[in-house]
Each structure stands twice: as structure tokens, then as C-alpha cells.
């Protein structure tokens, strides 16, 4: 890999731009798509690779080409700068998540408690609208306070977020479902909310709850059966 390609790849990564590294395996010739022009079959493969987040192998003009997608990091948005959030953050980072913590309560969302993490102090609906969750985003609400959790869930349910989890007991969740139903969300949309949040590992401590949540996020992302377990039916 030429230094020039590496530098541009790193720059795209820093700018959070999706980019595909396309390599001719016979001689190591490389280009970056979409920055560089490429013949149509390679462009198609690059589009697919980025959309599926899966590398592609292509034969073109008698040579084998490798198309390697480099998508921006997955995002984890945590609503509620609480103790569980503090435990969750350092588990999510090595798994490839760029973490943002949202909490208008400045006493909670401090750089002291969340060193190096993007903190947003706006009200949760404004914050979520700004963050615009997409299909590579997971959202977890942890405040236990409907005034903060509900607006964040409302925005998340209107987004393509691949994971939406909400801390709270079944009873809490039933009340939450009733409130969100009043906001116009149907049963199918509400079924997207994982609550009680996290895989059932009988978690007790903040760290264990953090582990159960991030494990569930990974299970959903990877399409594991664990990520689809039946929960007690929710009713409004």
C-alpha cells in the first residue's frame, strides 16, 4: 500500500466518510472509491461492500480484485449519564462503537465521569434529532425518568436505529408503551424496544448490566438468535 493511499484512507476514516479500498491482487495496484474513479464492475462491488459492510471479491479483466469496505464506526448513543453508562462506555469502545452520552443534567454528564466521551447536554429530543440515528446506530435509554427517556425513544422509533433498548422493569415498560402509544407509535414499532434491556444473565452490578446490554447490541447487530428472544408481550 502506498503511503499516499494509506494517508487518504486514514483521512476518510477521521472524517467518518465511508470508503472502499480496492486492490488488484495480482500486483497490488490500489484505489479508493468513491474518491478515485473506478470501472463499473468495481464500483458496483464497492457499493455492495459498503452497504453490506462485507468485503467482496471480483474478477475483472482477468485479474482478481479485493474490495475492502471501511465504514465509519458504529455509534452507540446512551441517554442518561448514570452509573450503568459509566460501566457501558469502556465496554462499547473496543467493540468498535463511537459513544455519545446524552443527559441535560450537567451534574451527571461531566468529563470527569466520562473522560474523552462526546457529551450532549441538550434536552433529549433535540439531542437525538441532532444525532439522527441511522442503521449503524444503537440507542440505549438509562435515565429511568420518562421526561428524559420518552422523547429520546420517540425520536429513535422514527429512525432506522438497529437497536433500541430501554432500562426498566416490565411494569415500567408497560407504562412506557402506553405513553409512547399515545404519541402515535404502533405495536410493531414499540416491539423494537428491548426492555427489560440486555441479555438475561441475571446481571446485578452496573458492570454486569453494561455487559448484558452491549452483548445484546452485538447479538442484534450480528443477527444472533439471542438478539431476537421473545419477551413478555407488551400491551398498552
Amino acid at each position: 500500500m502506498k503511503a499516499e493511499i494509506l494517508a487518504r484512507l486514514q483521512a476518510a476514516r477521521a472524517a467518518k466518510q465511508p470508503v472502499a479500498l480496492v486492490t488488484r491482487l495480482t500486483d497490488g495496484l490500489q484505489l479508493l472509491w468513491p474518491q478515485d474513479e473506478a470501472p463499473a464492475p468495481l464500483v458496483d462491488a464497492a457499493r455492495t461492500a459498503l452497504a453490506d459492510d462485507a468485503a467482496q471479491n471480483v474478477e475483472w479483466e482477468g485479474a482478481a480484485w479485493f474490495v475492502h469496505p471501511h465504514n465509519p464506526p458504529l455509534r452507540l448513543i446512551i441517554v442518561g449519564a448514570v452509573h450503568i453508562a459509566q460501566a457501558l462506555v469502556p465496554m462499547a469502545q473496543p467493540l468498535g462503537f463511537a459513544v455519545t452520552v446524552v443527559d441535560p443534567r450537567r451534574a451527571w454528564a461531566t468529563a470527569d465521569r466520562f473522560p474523552g466521551i462526546t457529551l450532549i447536554h441538550e434536552w433529549t429530543d433535540d439531542a437525538m434529532a441532532q444525532l439522527a440515528p441511522d442503521s449503524r446506530t444503537a440507542v440505549v435509554t438509562l435515565t429511568h425518568d420518562p421526561k428524559l427517556d420518552d422523547p429520546a425513544l420517540d425520536v429513535s422509533l422514527k429512525s432506522a436505529a438497529f437497536y433500541i433498548g430501554a432500562l426498566g422493569s416490565r411494569r415500567t415498560h408497560a407504562k412506557r408503551v402506553a405513553r409512547l402509544t399515545e404519541l402515535g407509535h404502533g405495536p410493531e414499532a414499540l416491539a423494537r424496544i428491548k426492555s427489560p434491556v440486555g441479555l438475561d444473565i441475571e446481571a446485578v452490578t452496573a458492570a454486569e448490566i453494561g455487559l448484558s446490554i452491549i452483548a445484546e447490541v452485538v447479538a442484534v447487530r450480528r443477527g444472533a438468535a439471542l438478539g431476537n428472544r421473545e419477551r413478555a408481550p407488551v400491551s398498552a
Binding site: L6, Q10, R13, A54, H68, P69, H70, N71, P94
Partner: peptide, 17 residues
Amino acid sequence: MSDTSEDILATAAGWVA
């Protein structure tokens, strides 16, 4: 898949530096 492979690139670039 690219989630952690990119950190390897950063490490490699660091060694080159």
C-alpha cells in the same frame, strides 16, 4: 468487520512514522 481492522492501519502507520 472494518471495526477493528482500521486500528491495525493506525498502528502500522505509527510504526512507519
